[in-house]
Design a protein around this nucleic acid. Structure first.
Length: 435
RNA sequence: CGGGGUGUAGCUCAGUAUGGUUAGAGUACCUGGUUUGGGACCAGGGGGCCGAAGGUUCGAGUCCUUUCACCCCGACCA
């Protein structure tokens, strides 16, 4: 892509309402644009990042044999009445009437829709287990949306649902999905913990959250310094039966824990940190299949309710989480798997013919290799283009500038902020090595 | 849903206590020129229903009433 033609409206000014790094930089670097409270439009750079995350999810879902479907976003309220959740969800569930005065809702999560899709179609144990998922816009009319993509009302989520004939088989699937989720977050280049969590309003028994470690996270989690154990703070407190007056939001109480708590699973010490919940997996059991009368016939010809699991992952929230974990004072630092463009070719002085020629040549060559490459061909000065490149966060920027007189260019590494001098003859090879 | 705050140019904001030329600055944008290794400089230019609706007044960005939107703290939260 040519920067001169790219729709990437970057700004020097910080949006007045942005607090979090991800919100500030995604806005300033031209990834997202707020439309209303909790509603954002994605511009080209954001779309590219989202697509990359989605591709990794599809990839790992295929590995565990989950199949992609797509449920309609607008859902008839009947299903929500049938499951009994229409009242439980309250105002967070956005309702409206169509022209025939029929009540519909915008899906905040899709247990009902998925069970409805499967019931009366999968009617034999022979066709189980089954794991179906989608990546789709969700809508929750949050009381208080905030923090940019972190807590919007409309957001993109991967939601998956599995159907089983036994709790043992559900356990197996649950573990497989936990592994898959870990792989996804690892591939995205994020530091995370899987923590024990509360099942919440969805219901069910086992529940784990994937927490991306970040100071700006909204969840307090206790993690062991020795083993993999981690727990959402509320869960940890319940287990340990600490004093009932404990207030998880109180700083003094949190400090109290920090001092003297041992891991319940090993001899390690627990410490407290903050996390961004990017994934949540549940063992649902038969809650929804019972409510919606979704049954199959077992080996003995007996009617049984599906035993279900559900697996969510916040795609748009992951975009923000990457930046929360990877940024500096100058802007975004995308990881290799999430970068909208891997390479930015910066022509320092567009009027310099030699610089221009080399830049164009390299650009076409990389394009030919399907490298995601941007060429900054704007008539701007060096400093302006560098600031812009740092704000957007390209992993690598090839600086074609005055060093060209010595037959060299530089590769600027956004993460380390180091510049490496490379001869013009080796630049192509060097870049291919970095990919 | 409680408490607080803000709405004026694409963006960041002055101006409102005490009503009074044609509503401002910076930045961004357009033209021309200079400049070209860390968000340059000079000159010229386009851009506003002062959130909306009512009212008070000779006169309202400014005062009054109503309303809408957005943000922050809290509670809530797959």
């Amino acid at each position: 892509m040519r920067r001169s033609k790219a729709f990437i409206p970057t700004t020097k000014e910080v949006p007045s309402d942005a607090v979090l790094a991800s919100h500030i930089f995604l806005s300033r670097a031209g990834f997202i644009s707020q439309v209303a409270s909790g509603l954002y439009s994605y511009m080209p750079l954001a779309k590219k990042v989202i697509r990359k995350i989605e591709n990794i999810i599809h990839d790992e879902m295929a590995q565990v044999g989950a199949q992609e479907v797509e449920l309609s976003f607008v859902a008839p309220s009947d299903l929500w009445i049938e499951s009994g959740r229409i009242d439980k969800f309250g105002k967070e569930l956005l309702r409206f009437y169509d022209r025939k005065e029929k009540l519909f809702v915008l899906g905040p999560t899709h247990e009902e829709m998925m069970v409805d899709l499967v019931r009366n179609r999968v009617v034999s144990y022979k066709n189980l287990p089954l794991n179906l998922y989608q990546i789709k816009t969700k809508f929750r009319d949050e009381v208080r949306p905030r923090y940019g993509l972190m807590r919007g009302r409309e957001f993109i989520m991967k939601d998956g649902y599995s159907f089983h004939t036994s709790t043992e088989d559900l356990d197996r699937e649950f573990d497989a999905l936990e592994v898959a989720y870990k792989k996804i977050i690892t591939r995205l280049g994020l530091d995370f913990r899987v923590v024990e969590a509360d099942s919440g309003a969805i219901g069910g028994s086992g529940s784990k959250e994937i927490m991306v470690i970040a100071d700006s996270g909204e969840d307090n989690i206790a993690v062991c310094d020795t083993c993999e154990y981690g727990a959402n703070i509320e869960v940890f407190l319940n287990m340990d039966e600490l004093d009932e007056d404990f207030d998880a939001n109180s700083i003094t109480d949190i400090k109290t824990i920090k001092g003297d708590d041992n891991c319940p699973h090993c001899a390690g010490k627990l410490s407290l940190t903050k996390g961004i919940e990017v994934g949540h997996i549940f063992k649902l059991g038969t809650t929804y299949s019972d409510a919606l009368k979704a049954k199959y016939l077992d080996e003995n010809g007996q009617s049984q309710s599906f035993i279900m699991g559900t697996y969510g992952m916040g795609v748009s929230r992951l975009v923000a989480a990457v930046i929360e974990q990877h940024h500096d004072e100058n802007g975004c630092i995308w990881t290799k798997e999430t970068a909208p463009y891997m390479v930015n070719i910066m022509i320092s002085n567009i009027k310099d013919e030699a610089q221009n020629t080399l830049g164009e040549e390299l650009y076409l060559k990389l394009l030919g290799e399907n490298i995601e490459v941007m060429i900054d061909d704007r008539k701007e000065r060096f400093g302006f283009k560098m600031k812009d490149a740092e704000l957007i966060g390209f992993p690598y920027t090839v600086i074609i500038g005055k060093e060209l007189a010595n037959g060299t260019v530089e590769i600027y590494d956004r993460k380390t902020t180091l510049k490496t001098t490379v001869s013009t003859g080796e630049i192509y090879k060097k870049i291919m090595e970095l990919m």
